[in-house]
Design a protein around this nucleic acid. Sequence first.
RNA 1: GGGCAGUUAGCUCAGUUGGUUAGAGCGAACGGUUUACAUCCGUUAGGUCAUAGGUUCGAAUCCUAUACUGCCAACCA
Length: 711
Amino acid sequence: MDLPKVFKPEEFELEIYKQWEASGNFSPSKDGKGEPFCVIMPPPNSNGSLHVGHAVFVTLEDIMVRFHRMKGQSTLWLPGADHAGFETQVVYQKKLEKEGRNWFTIPREELYQEIWDFTQTNKAVMEGQLRRLGASCDWSKERFALDPGIVKIVNQTFKKMYDDGLAYRGERIVNWCVKHQTTLSDLEVKHEEKEDPLYFIKYGPITLATVRLETKFGDTAIAVHPDDERYQQYIGKEVEVDTLIGKTKIKVIADEAVDPAFGTGAVKVTPAHDPIDYDIWQRHKNEIPGPMIVIDQFGKLDLLKHFPDNEAAKKYHGLKIAEARKVIAEDMEKAGLMVKIDPTYKHSVATCYKCSNVLEPRVLPQWFIKMKPLAAKAMEAVRKGEVKFVTERFEKIFFHWLENIRDWNVSRQIVWGIRIPVWYKGEEIYVGEVAPTEEGWAQETDVFDTWFSSGQWPFATLKTTGDFEKFYPTTVMETGWDILFFWVARMIMLGLYVTGEVPFKHVYLHGLVRDKDRQKMSKSKGNVIDPLGVVENYGADALRMALVFGVSAGNDIVISEDKIRAHRNFANKIWNASRFVMMNLGDNFIPGQIDLEKASSTDKAILVRIEEVGKTLTKHLDNFDFHLGAEEIYQFFWHEFCDKYLEEIKPAFAEGAAEKAKVNTQQVLFKVWLASIKYLHPFVPFVTEAVYQMSPAKQKEFLMIEDWPQN
RNA sequence: GGGCAGUUAGCUCAGUUGGUUAGAGCGAACGGUUUACAUCCGUUAGGUCAUAGGUUCGAAUCCUAUACUGCCAACCA
């Protein structure tokens, strides 16, 4: 036996993975013991390469999958990639900007094709990276979110929802990102605390406070609280207002939503450009005019449509919001309409979660999904225990969100995605899987929110691979808690709606990866750990072990180079201990019976311990306590098996030791060693497979398909 | 105003139905060239488990309050 003293991952990992994959053992076995086990991989976005967060899910899911596969269950881990509509659009838009090209001037089909190629390139890179991390998923069943089969199912679902009255087209005030030229769902809005001047301005006899001076031309009312004594005389009446572009009459209405304690207790109502004002108008439709759009999709004042012959309006027309606000403030000051300015007013502002620009609310026709009925079913399923969360506290968060859910805007004014399967002809609407055959129908140009299709991912993928009957509902959904609402909740709702069953029985949520100073990783901070770089330097096993060790479900994952190094050392320990074992077994060793009566007390003790450890480890893995399992086998292997047992049996292998006792100890040594590397395999698959392959007594083609020692 | 967590050794974190001297990794100190491994081995130091009450024979673990930290969700102009 001539093995190097140090384990060199790079010499083994690639080759071992190739052999595993070629062997076909990543595919589920035809006949399995017990329940089938299925994990649908959270499909990574095909717009970049893998980051350390992806390594977390690979590690956790691969541990589960390898464990259940070794237990003999028919096991499917289905990989995939997401088109990631808006996210990819943002990435690609940046790329185009760098190249000096303009997104909005490229024809739709051309752009789509370009992004398609872009995502396919990324997807191929990611597949290689997933392999590098050791993911034992079934590549033959990989799916992409825009595969025709998936798109067909997504469209069918939408049609069903339309027919059931759950999908509807509505004109509403929605979140509009001026930079990205699309609407966003409420979940994609980030509220940021900002400091802006609060202007106290005169509207005829009434003084009111506002931040958004520039929307004043779209005001259709003034609102006060019904009980506010200061304004009783005006309620229901019109007041004359100097608007800077003329004098006009505007009605004063009473609405409970107005807080008399804020500002002057009076607000201007601009239904077209403020969600609260929009709601106020909804309640007073008969009294006041509706939305009057004075800001266009690019965030510029658009006045000439409403005030075509107004010379004063020309001054403001076309100004951007920030500039308009400044100019209007100055002019109001000059006109004596400005009472005072509070320059340090703090309030929270809705911004785009990608570009942080302030969102401009707009009134647009969009497709919405009615959420209340879907949410009710999802909550019921969770209450009945059909879906269980690890850890349980996420259930509370889940309920809290679903109880307050509002309808979901699924329309996006972008190119990259599944085009909403709706056709219009005049006033008529057609919803279907494919275009109507007659002439004259034009398809909706909007595409679905990505999460509308990824929300169907578990059943959509399994239906297209033909595994639905066997593997749905799937066993576990493992993903980050940050997408609990975006994805997990939607999968439960849509899965229940379409299939009548929950998409998965367990939800395991992992946390965010942070650096050793607890900082969130970001490119700008320069503290990003590149998983592939770590794999190059320390091996995939070291990274995997570092990502589970001491990490409990739902909590953030702290990782540092020190920690990775420590587990690289552990992999090396496994390597060296195995070298030692093989050296002492010799090339001609044949596994055989252990004579328990003649066994030494040391041998007996270690046999008892490996059984206990196996039991505990199995229990932990069944309970999704991966960190406890990892620690159990780590401690046993390093500090009991290596530090103590191997040292204690050295005399038995010394020259002149009794041959019979030695033979018996060899059997014990082999048994305990083999059980250990089986137990370690889900965590550190490469080094354990490497030493198994070198073992003189390997009984199966691979360690990955060995039997989990049952107790 | 709301909801959910966290507060344990110098640092980062485990600790699953409450039970003997509270653990790990890294770091620190000291000592080891015995042929598996210096990516190693042995020994040691270090914590009133945020604070104050309560339940209990017994609490890091359950309850209440307080403080600090973090996160989520939010229609306050």
